[in-house]
């Protein structure tokens, strides 16, 4: 079999770490951003594309795209809705919430007693508090969730939107 195809070697662990650190800072806004990164790291564009693609396939990166400032886009109401749900019901309710289009994140977290009885957290970003509360009421009514104890915590001020070493590109509030 004759072929002219040259396959670049898989990146070493160290090269992968360098590549990750580089893309975490953000891709340059140029026509060939992956090439620009490859040149910086002295690897090939093909290696960059293949590696990022593999990371996505493996779920190491959930999504690779644009990071927006939600307040600047008019999403001023940011609600953390917390629920106290029996352990046996958590998964069922979490899946209902996760499927609601307005819910952006949904996590199970430990209760911290005394003082914090809630074990399921979800985020709803909306343009106003009224809109968010309306969307929440709608979900509760449609799925009979009103029987569960819950609380809505709106954010009143954002102090630090980035800074942690790993935090820059992970939106978790």
């Amino acid at each position: 079999m004759t072929t002219n195809l040259v396959i670049d070697p898989v990146l070493s662990d160290q090269q992968q770490a360098q590549l990750f650190a580089e893309i975490e800072q953000g891709l340059p806004l140029v026509a060939q951003p992956y090439l620009a990164i490859a040149q910086q790291l002295n690897i090939s564009e093909e290696q960059v594309l293949t590696t990022i693609d593999a990371w996505q396939q493996q779920g190491l990166i959930w999504r690779f795209g644009l990071v927006v400032r939600h307040r600047k886009l008019g999403y001023d109401a940011n609600a953390m809705v917390v629920w106290n749900i029996e352990d046996s019901e958590v998964e069922r309710v979490a899946n209902i919430l996760a499927q609601a289009s307005v819910v952006t994140l949904c996590y199970q977290r430990p209760r911290v007693l005394p003082g914090w009885p809630y074990n399921l957290f979800c985020m709803i970003h909306g343009k106003s508090r009224e809109q968010v509360l309306g969307q929440l009421a709608d979900i509760c009514q449609r799925h009979q969730l009103d029987k569960f104890d819950k609380n809505v915590l709106f954010s009143t001020k954002a102090y630090k939107q980035r800074g942690g070493r790993y935090s820059a590109s992970v939106i978790k509030e």
């Binding site: 953000g26 806004l29 951003p33 959930w62 999504r63 400032r69």
Partner: peptide, 27 residues
């Protein structure tokens, strides 16, 4: 570029699970 300059957008980057990359997070 205009939207990046005006601060509407922050950048193009990955969203990832820090635990997979040797880091950790908590709320």
């Amino acid at each position: 570029q205009l939207m990046l300059d005006s601060g509407l957008l922050t950048r193009f980057g990955p969203m990832f699970d820090a635990a997979c990359w040797g880091g950790d997070f908590t709320l």
